[in-house]
Protein backbone atom coordinates (compact mmCIF):
# COMPACT_ATOMS: atom_id res chain seq x y z
CA UNK A 1 0.00 0.00 0.00
CA UNK A 2 1.62 3.21 -1.20
CA UNK A 3 2.12 6.00 1.31
CA UNK A 4 0.14 9.13 0.46
CA UNK A 5 1.69 12.52 1.08
CA UNK A 6 -0.33 15.44 2.44
CA UNK A 7 -0.49 16.97 -1.06
CA UNK A 8 -1.87 13.73 -2.50
CA UNK A 9 -4.38 13.45 0.34
CA UNK A 10 -5.56 17.00 -0.40
CA UNK A 11 -5.77 16.24 -4.12
CA UNK A 12 -7.79 13.08 -3.49
CA UNK A 13 -10.02 14.96 -1.09
CA UNK A 14 -10.71 17.58 -3.75
CA UNK A 15 -11.94 14.74 -5.99
CA UNK A 16 -14.65 13.71 -3.58
CA UNK A 17 -16.96 16.67 -3.84
CA UNK A 18 -16.54 16.95 -7.60
CA UNK A 19 -19.95 16.27 -9.14
CA UNK A 20 -20.04 13.40 -11.57
CA UNK A 21 -21.58 15.08 -14.60
CA UNK A 22 -21.01 12.22 -17.04
CA UNK A 23 -24.07 11.68 -19.17
CA UNK A 24 -25.31 15.21 -18.58
CA UNK A 25 -25.02 18.35 -20.69
CA UNK A 26 -23.04 20.12 -17.97
CA UNK A 27 -19.34 20.50 -17.30
CA UNK A 28 -18.18 21.58 -13.86
CA UNK A 29 -16.12 24.76 -13.80
CA UNK A 30 -15.57 25.55 -10.12
CA UNK A 31 -17.11 25.41 -6.69
CA UNK A 32 -19.15 28.52 -5.92
CA UNK A 33 -20.41 27.89 -2.43
CA UNK A 34 -21.46 25.16 -0.11
CA UNK A 35 -24.06 24.73 2.55
CA UNK A 36 -24.65 22.10 5.17
CA UNK A 37 -25.95 19.43 2.83
CA UNK A 38 -25.15 20.55 -0.71
CA UNK A 39 -22.64 22.45 -2.79
CA UNK A 40 -23.27 24.91 -5.59
CA UNK A 41 -21.02 24.56 -8.63
CA UNK A 42 -20.51 26.87 -11.54
CA UNK A 43 -20.99 24.72 -14.61
CA UNK A 44 -21.14 25.16 -18.34
CA UNK A 45 -24.19 24.01 -20.27
CA UNK A 46 -22.43 22.42 -23.24
CA UNK A 47 -25.55 22.51 -25.40
CA UNK A 48 -26.57 26.14 -24.94
CA UNK A 49 -23.03 27.34 -24.15
CA UNK A 50 -24.01 29.30 -21.10
CA UNK A 51 -22.97 29.22 -17.50
CA UNK A 52 -25.35 27.75 -14.97
CA UNK A 53 -25.34 27.08 -11.23
CA UNK A 54 -25.61 23.43 -10.21
CA UNK A 55 -26.74 22.66 -6.69
CA UNK A 56 -25.57 19.12 -5.91
CA UNK A 57 -26.26 17.17 -2.73
CA UNK A 58 -23.18 15.98 -0.83
CA UNK A 59 -24.44 12.45 -0.48
CA UNK A 60 -26.62 10.18 -2.54
CA UNK A 61 -28.26 8.45 0.38
CA UNK A 62 -29.27 11.19 2.76
CA UNK A 63 -31.20 9.64 5.59
CA UNK A 64 -33.49 12.61 6.04
CA UNK A 65 -34.88 12.67 2.54
CA UNK A 66 -32.65 15.48 1.36
CA UNK A 67 -32.89 14.34 -2.23
CA UNK A 68 -36.65 14.70 -2.17
CA UNK A 69 -36.29 18.10 -0.57
CA UNK A 70 -33.93 19.37 -3.26
CA UNK A 71 -36.28 18.14 -5.95
CA UNK A 72 -39.09 19.81 -4.06
CA UNK A 73 -37.13 23.07 -4.05
CA UNK A 74 -36.67 22.79 -7.83
CA UNK A 75 -40.37 22.13 -8.26
CA UNK A 76 -41.29 25.15 -6.13
CA UNK A 77 -38.85 27.39 -8.01
CA UNK A 78 -40.27 26.16 -11.31
CA UNK A 79 -43.74 27.16 -10.16
CA UNK A 80 -42.62 30.69 -9.22
CA UNK A 81 -41.87 32.63 -12.38
CA UNK A 82 -40.84 36.05 -11.20
CA UNK A 83 -37.91 38.32 -12.12
CA UNK A 84 -36.94 38.39 -8.45
CA UNK A 85 -36.77 34.61 -8.09
CA UNK A 86 -33.86 32.69 -9.58
CA UNK A 87 -35.22 30.47 -12.38
CA UNK A 88 -34.62 26.73 -12.36
CA UNK A 89 -33.66 25.06 -15.66
CA UNK A 90 -33.39 21.41 -14.79
CA UNK A 91 -33.26 18.86 -11.99
CA UNK A 92 -32.39 15.20 -11.76
CA UNK A 93 -29.97 12.57 -10.50
CA UNK A 94 -26.30 12.34 -11.43
CA UNK A 95 -24.54 9.11 -12.33
CA UNK A 96 -23.19 8.85 -8.77
CA UNK A 97 -26.71 8.94 -7.39
CA UNK A 98 -26.62 12.50 -6.10
CA UNK A 99 -29.57 14.72 -6.85
CA UNK A 100 -28.87 18.03 -8.56
CA UNK A 101 -30.78 21.13 -9.48
CA UNK A 102 -29.66 23.41 -12.32
CA UNK A 103 -30.42 27.11 -11.92
CA UNK A 104 -29.58 30.39 -13.58
CA UNK A 105 -26.09 31.50 -12.63
CA UNK A 106 -26.47 34.88 -10.98
CA UNK A 107 -23.34 36.96 -10.93
CA UNK A 108 -23.21 39.76 -8.44
CA UNK A 109 -23.04 39.95 -4.71
CA UNK A 110 -25.17 39.06 -1.76
CA UNK A 111 -26.90 41.77 0.24
CA UNK A 112 -24.45 40.94 3.00
CA UNK A 113 -21.66 42.18 0.72
CA UNK A 114 -23.70 44.84 -1.04
CA UNK A 115 -24.72 46.84 2.05
CA UNK A 116 -21.35 48.54 2.08
CA UNK A 117 -22.21 50.18 -1.25
CA UNK A 118 -25.54 51.57 -0.14
CA UNK A 119 -25.30 55.32 0.02
CA UNK A 120 -28.50 56.42 1.73
CA UNK A 121 -31.43 55.21 3.77
CA UNK A 122 -33.85 55.75 0.88
CA UNK A 123 -31.64 53.62 -1.39
CA UNK A 124 -31.69 50.89 1.24
CA UNK A 125 -35.47 51.13 1.56
CA UNK A 126 -35.97 50.86 -2.19
CA UNK A 127 -33.83 47.72 -2.10
CA UNK A 128 -36.03 46.26 0.64
CA UNK A 129 -39.08 46.97 -1.54
CA UNK A 130 -37.42 45.00 -4.35
CA UNK A 131 -36.88 42.07 -1.99
CA UNK A 132 -40.48 42.27 -0.83
CA UNK A 133 -41.81 41.85 -4.39
CA UNK A 134 -40.75 38.21 -5.00
CA UNK A 135 -41.56 37.35 -1.40
CA UNK A 136 -45.09 38.69 -1.76
CA UNK A 137 -45.40 36.91 -5.10
CA UNK A 138 -44.39 33.62 -3.50
CA UNK A 139 -46.91 34.12 -0.70
CA UNK A 140 -49.63 34.79 -3.25
CA UNK A 141 -48.75 31.40 -4.74
CA UNK A 142 -48.88 29.69 -1.36
CA UNK A 143 -45.12 29.41 -0.79
CA UNK A 144 -43.17 30.54 2.29
CA UNK A 145 -39.44 31.13 2.01
CA UNK A 146 -38.61 30.55 5.71
CA UNK A 147 -34.93 31.43 5.38
CA UNK A 148 -34.76 35.00 4.13
CA UNK A 149 -31.49 36.67 5.12
CA UNK A 150 -28.89 38.97 3.56
CA UNK A 151 -26.83 35.97 2.44
CA UNK A 152 -29.81 34.64 0.47
CA UNK A 153 -30.45 37.88 -1.39
CA UNK A 154 -28.45 38.55 -4.51
CA UNK A 155 -27.93 41.88 -6.24
CA UNK A 156 -27.02 41.32 -9.89
CA UNK A 157 -24.76 43.41 -12.13
CA UNK A 158 -27.73 45.31 -13.57
CA UNK A 159 -29.16 46.06 -10.16
CA UNK A 160 -31.61 43.19 -10.30
CA UNK A 161 -32.55 41.79 -6.91
CA UNK A 162 -33.08 38.04 -6.56
CA UNK A 163 -34.21 36.04 -3.57
CA UNK A 164 -32.16 32.83 -3.53
CA UNK A 165 -31.99 29.52 -1.70
CA UNK A 166 -35.52 28.24 -1.45
CA UNK A 167 -34.29 25.03 0.17
CA UNK A 168 -36.48 25.54 3.22
CA UNK A 169 -39.44 26.85 1.22
CA UNK A 170 -42.79 25.37 2.05
CA UNK A 171 -46.18 25.23 0.47
CA UNK A 172 -49.07 26.47 2.58
CA UNK A 173 -52.83 26.78 2.38
CA UNK A 174 -53.33 29.41 -0.30
CA UNK A 175 -56.63 30.76 1.00
CA UNK A 176 -55.14 31.70 4.33
CA UNK A 177 -51.68 32.61 3.11
CA UNK A 178 -52.24 36.33 3.17
CA UNK A 179 -53.77 36.89 6.54
CA UNK A 180 -54.03 34.13 9.10
CA UNK A 181 -51.43 34.46 11.87
CA UNK A 182 -50.71 30.87 12.94
CA UNK A 183 -51.19 29.15 9.66
CA UNK A 184 -52.73 25.80 9.05
CA UNK A 185 -50.34 23.60 7.19
CA UNK A 186 -51.51 22.35 3.84
CA UNK A 187 -52.42 18.66 3.90
CA UNK A 188 -49.52 18.14 1.53
CA UNK A 189 -47.22 19.27 4.30
CA UNK A 190 -47.28 15.83 5.76
CA UNK A 191 -45.82 14.47 2.56
CA UNK A 192 -42.27 13.33 2.98
CA UNK A 193 -40.92 15.60 0.25
CA UNK A 194 -42.05 18.76 2.01
CA UNK A 195 -39.61 20.24 4.50
CA UNK A 196 -40.66 19.57 8.07
CA UNK A 197 -43.89 21.28 9.10
CA UNK A 198 -42.34 22.11 12.41
CA UNK A 199 -38.84 21.85 13.86
CA UNK A 200 -36.24 24.60 13.90
CA UNK A 201 -35.67 25.80 10.34
CA UNK A 202 -34.10 29.11 9.42
CA UNK A 203 -31.13 31.23 10.42
CA UNK A 204 -30.72 32.66 13.93
CA UNK A 205 -31.04 36.41 13.90
CA UNK A 206 -33.32 36.37 10.88
CA UNK A 207 -35.82 33.64 11.71
CA UNK A 208 -38.97 34.44 13.63
CA UNK A 209 -39.46 33.47 17.28
CA UNK A 210 -42.06 30.88 16.26
CA UNK A 211 -39.50 29.28 13.94
CA UNK A 212 -36.95 29.28 16.74
CA UNK A 213 -39.47 27.50 18.93
CA UNK A 214 -40.03 24.96 16.21
CA UNK A 215 -43.63 26.03 15.68
CA UNK A 216 -45.30 26.21 12.28
CA UNK A 217 -44.30 29.17 10.13
CA UNK A 218 -46.73 31.54 8.44
CA UNK A 219 -46.40 34.47 6.00
CA UNK A 220 -45.86 36.60 9.09
CA UNK A 221 -42.70 34.59 9.74
CA UNK A 222 -41.35 35.84 6.41
CA UNK A 223 -42.54 39.34 7.41
CA UNK A 224 -40.34 39.00 10.48
CA UNK A 225 -37.36 37.91 8.38
CA UNK A 226 -37.89 40.78 5.95
CA UNK A 227 -38.04 43.16 8.93
CA UNK A 228 -34.77 41.70 10.22
CA UNK A 229 -33.17 42.10 6.78
CA UNK A 230 -34.48 45.68 6.71
CA UNK A 231 -32.99 46.43 10.13
CA UNK A 232 -29.68 44.87 9.07
CA UNK A 233 -29.59 46.93 5.87
CA UNK A 234 -30.66 50.21 7.48
CA UNK A 235 -28.12 49.83 10.28
CA UNK A 236 -25.37 49.90 7.64
CA UNK A 237 -26.66 53.16 6.17
CA UNK A 238 -27.35 54.82 9.52
CA UNK A 239 -24.88 57.34 10.93
CA UNK A 240 -22.10 55.45 12.73
CA UNK A 241 -23.94 52.26 11.74
CA UNK A 242 -26.23 52.85 14.72
CA UNK A 243 -29.77 51.63 14.22
CA UNK A 244 -30.93 53.92 17.03
CA UNK A 245 -29.92 56.96 15.03
CA UNK A 246 -32.53 56.19 12.36
CA UNK A 247 -35.79 58.18 12.26
CA UNK A 248 -38.41 56.89 14.67
CA UNK A 249 -40.97 55.91 12.00
CA UNK A 250 -38.38 53.65 10.37
CA UNK A 251 -37.48 52.04 13.66
CA UNK A 252 -41.19 51.53 14.32
CA UNK A 253 -41.67 49.84 10.94
CA UNK A 254 -38.83 47.44 11.76
CA UNK A 255 -40.23 46.96 15.26
CA UNK A 256 -43.69 46.13 13.98
CA UNK A 257 -42.33 43.74 11.35
CA UNK A 258 -40.22 42.00 13.98
CA UNK A 259 -42.79 41.87 16.77
CA UNK A 260 -42.37 38.72 18.85
CA UNK A 261 -46.10 38.06 18.64
CA UNK A 262 -47.01 37.25 15.01
CA UNK A 263 -50.45 38.82 15.51
CA UNK A 264 -48.81 42.21 16.16
CA UNK A 265 -46.77 42.15 12.95
CA UNK A 266 -47.83 43.40 9.53
CA UNK A 267 -50.42 40.99 8.22
CA UNK A 268 -48.52 40.56 4.97
CA UNK A 269 -45.34 41.46 3.14
CA UNK A 270 -47.41 43.84 0.98
CA UNK A 271 -48.55 45.71 4.11
CA UNK A 272 -44.96 46.10 5.24
CA UNK A 273 -43.93 47.26 1.75
CA UNK A 274 -46.81 49.74 1.71
CA UNK A 275 -45.62 51.29 4.97
CA UNK A 276 -42.07 51.56 3.60
CA UNK A 277 -43.44 53.24 0.45
CA UNK A 278 -45.45 55.67 2.58
CA UNK A 279 -42.30 56.56 4.49
CA UNK A 280 -40.41 57.16 1.26
CA UNK A 281 -43.24 59.45 0.09
CA UNK A 282 -43.09 61.26 3.45
CA UNK A 283 -46.57 60.18 4.37
CA UNK A 284 -47.62 58.90 7.82
CA UNK A 285 -46.83 55.25 8.42
CA UNK A 286 -49.17 52.83 10.16
CA UNK A 287 -46.47 51.64 12.56
CA UNK A 288 -45.89 55.02 14.17
CA UNK A 289 -48.20 57.69 15.60
CA UNK A 290 -46.43 61.03 15.18
CA UNK A 291 -46.98 64.11 17.36
CA UNK A 292 -47.95 67.54 16.05
CA UNK A 293 -44.39 68.77 15.75
CA UNK A 294 -43.23 65.65 13.91
CA UNK A 295 -46.23 65.89 11.63
CA UNK A 296 -45.46 69.53 10.87
CA UNK A 297 -41.84 68.79 10.11
CA UNK A 298 -42.83 65.87 7.88
CA UNK A 299 -45.37 67.99 6.03
CA UNK A 300 -42.83 70.73 5.60
CA UNK A 301 -40.38 68.25 4.16
CA UNK A 302 -43.01 66.71 1.96
CA UNK A 303 -44.30 70.01 0.61
CA UNK A 304 -40.98 71.82 0.75
CA UNK A 305 -41.19 73.01 -2.87
CA UNK A 306 -44.72 74.33 -2.54
CA UNK A 307 -43.90 75.99 0.77
CA UNK A 308 -40.79 77.65 -0.70
CA UNK A 309 -42.81 78.83 -3.70
CA UNK A 310 -45.57 80.23 -1.50
CA UNK A 311 -43.05 81.91 0.80
CA UNK A 312 -41.20 83.34 -2.19
CA UNK A 313 -44.48 84.61 -3.62
CA UNK A 314 -45.45 86.17 -0.30
CA UNK A 315 -42.04 87.73 0.06
CA UNK A 316 -42.14 89.19 -3.45
CA UNK A 317 -45.70 90.34 -2.86
CA UNK A 318 -44.62 92.02 0.35
CA UNK A 319 -41.76 93.74 -1.41
CA UNK A 320 -44.09 94.86 -4.18
CA UNK A 321 -46.60 96.35 -1.69
CA UNK A 322 -43.78 98.00 0.23
CA UNK A 323 -42.30 99.64 -2.86
CA UNK A 324 -45.76 100.53 -4.22
CA UNK A 325 -46.55 102.50 -1.02
CA UNK A 326 -43.35 104.49 -1.36
Amino acid sequence: MKWLSDQVVDQLRANLGFPDLSGTRYRAVRLLARGGMAAVWLAEDTVLHRQVALKVLDLADGKDDLAARLLREAEILASLEHPGIVPVHDAGTLADGRVFCCMKYVQGETLEQHVRRLGSTSEALRLILRIAEPLAFAHSHGVLHRDLKPGNTMIGPFGEVLVMDWGLAKRIELASAATAPPLAIHPEAGHSTNPPATGVVGTPGFMSPEQERGDAASPRSDVFSLGAVMAFTLAHTAPKNAFRSLPRPLRSICGKAMAANPALRYESVEALAADISRYLEQMPVSAYRENVLERSVRLMHRHATAIVLVLAYLFMRGLFILFAKR
Binding site: R13, A39, L59
Partner: peptide
Protein backbone atom coordinates in the same frame (compact mmCIF):
# COMPACT_ATOMS: atom_id res chain seq x y z
CA UNK B 1 -23.16 3.98 13.19
CA UNK B 2 -25.06 5.37 10.24
CA UNK B 3 -25.28 8.73 12.01
CA UNK B 4 -21.52 8.86 12.48
CA UNK B 5 -21.02 7.86 8.85
CA UNK B 6 -23.35 10.60 7.60
CA UNK B 7 -21.68 13.24 9.76
CA UNK B 8 -18.18 12.12 8.78
CA UNK B 9 -19.06 11.95 5.10
CA UNK B 10 -20.43 15.47 5.17
CA UNK B 11 -17.41 16.76 7.05
CA UNK B 12 -15.14 15.06 4.52
CA UNK B 13 -17.02 16.40 1.51
CA UNK B 14 -17.45 19.81 3.06
CA UNK B 15 -13.73 20.19 3.43
CA UNK B 16 -13.35 20.48 -0.36
CA UNK B 17 -14.84 23.94 -0.24
Amino acid sequence: TEEEFQAEARALLGATA
